[in-house]
C-alpha cells in the first residue's frame, strides 16, 4: 500500500508540475492501476508510426482515443474509434480522429492518440468520487448511459467505506436488476465492482487533492470474471 501511495503521489506531482488540473486519461488510468483498480491496457502514441508499433504489441481489435488536455469529452469531439481490426483501419482512423478534434477545437493541444486494448461487450457502470465541501470525500455509483444521464439513478456514500457498504450501494440503485441479469442473462461480477468502489473511496479519502474522479465506463463481466475500467478522468483540487 505504501508503494501504491508513493506511485500515486508521483503521478499527481508530475502532472501538477505542468500546472495541469485535469489529468489525461492515460495518467488517470496510471493512478488507478497503481491503486489496484484494473484498467485496460492503454499506451500513448505520439504519431502514427508509434501507434502501429503499439498496435502490433496489443493486437487487434483495439480502440484509439485522442489524448489532449483540452478535450474533456473525447466522444463529443469525435475523438474515439473502437473496434479497429487492421493496420489499414488504424491508419485511416488515426488521421480521422485527429482531424475531427482539430475541427472541433482548432487550438487544442493534441499530444497524440492512446491505443487501447479492446474489451468485449459487458455491462457498463460508472464509479466516481468527489470532495464535497461539507462532507469531504464521497463516492458514487450508477449504471452507465441513460441510467445516469436521464434517470439520475445514483447511489452515494461517504468515503472511506467498507466492501460491504459498497455492495449495499450497488444494490441500492433502481437499475440493479440489470446487474443481477435480466432476460436470462447471467449475473455480473458485483464483487469485483464492490472492490473497485471500496478502492476508489480509499483513494479519494487519502488524496483530498483529487477533487473529482470519474471512471466511466467500467466494463463489468460475468460473475467471477472481473471488471475493467475503460475510461477515467481525474481532476485535481486546484481547479477551483
Amino acid at each position: 500500500m505504501v508503494a501504491a501511495k508513493k506511485k500515486v503521489v508521483e503521478i499527481i506531482h508530475l502532472a501538477g508540475k505542468n500546472d495541469k488540473y485535469e489529468l489525461l486519461e492515460l495518467e488517470s488510468k496510471q493512478v488507478l492501476a497503481a491503486w489496484g483498480v484494473p484498467v485496460n491496457r492503454t499506451e500513448l502514441a505520439r504519431d502514427l508510426g508509434e501507434a502501429i508499433r503499439i498496435a502490433r504489441e496489443i493486437h487487434y481489435p483495439l480502440a484509439i482515443k485522442v489524448a489532449s488536455p483540452d478535450i474533456p469529452s473525447k466522444s463529443e469531439a469525435k475523438g474515439v474509434r473502437v473496434g479497429i481490426s487492421s493496420e489499414l483501419e488504424l491508419r485511416q482512423a488515426f488521421g480521422e480522429i485527429v482531424n475531427n478534434v482539430r475541427e472541433y477545437k482548432p487550438d487544442a493541444d493534441i499530444i497524440g492518440v492512446t491505443v487501447q486494448e479492446y474489451l468485449p461487450p459487458a455491462r457498463e457502470v460508472i464509479v466516481g468520487a468527489l470532495q464535497d465541501p461539507s462532507f469531504g470525500a464521497t463516492v458514487r455509483f450508477s449504471l452507465a448511459g441513460f441510467w445516469a444521464d436521464v434517470f439520475n439513478d445514483f447511489s452515494f456514500r461517504l468515503a472511506p467505506l467498507s466492501v460491504e457498504d459498497a455492495r449495499e450501494m450497488i444494490q441500492e440503485i433502481k437499475g440493479y436488476p440489470v446487474l443481477e441479469g435480466i432476460r436470462g442473462e447471467s449475473p455480473a461480477d458485483v464483487n469485483a465492482l464492490a472492490g473497485i468502489i471500496q478502492k476508489v473511496g480509499q483513494l479519494a479519502h487519502e488524496f483530498p487533492e483529487i477533487n473529482k474522479l470519474d471512471i466511466d465506463p467500467i466494463f463489468t463481466f460475468e460473475a467471477g470474471k472481473g471488471a475493467i475500467a475503460a475510461d477515467a478522468r481525474i481532476v485535481l483540487g486546484r481547479s477551483k
Binding site: D132, F135, T138, F154, S155, F156, R157, L158, L161, D165
Partner: peptide, 10 residues
C-alpha cells in the same frame, strides 16, 4: 440531498 441521505444511513 443524496449525499446527506447516504451519510445519515451510513
Amino acid at each position: 440531498e443524496k449525499i446527506f441521505d447516504a451519510a445519515l444511513k451510513q
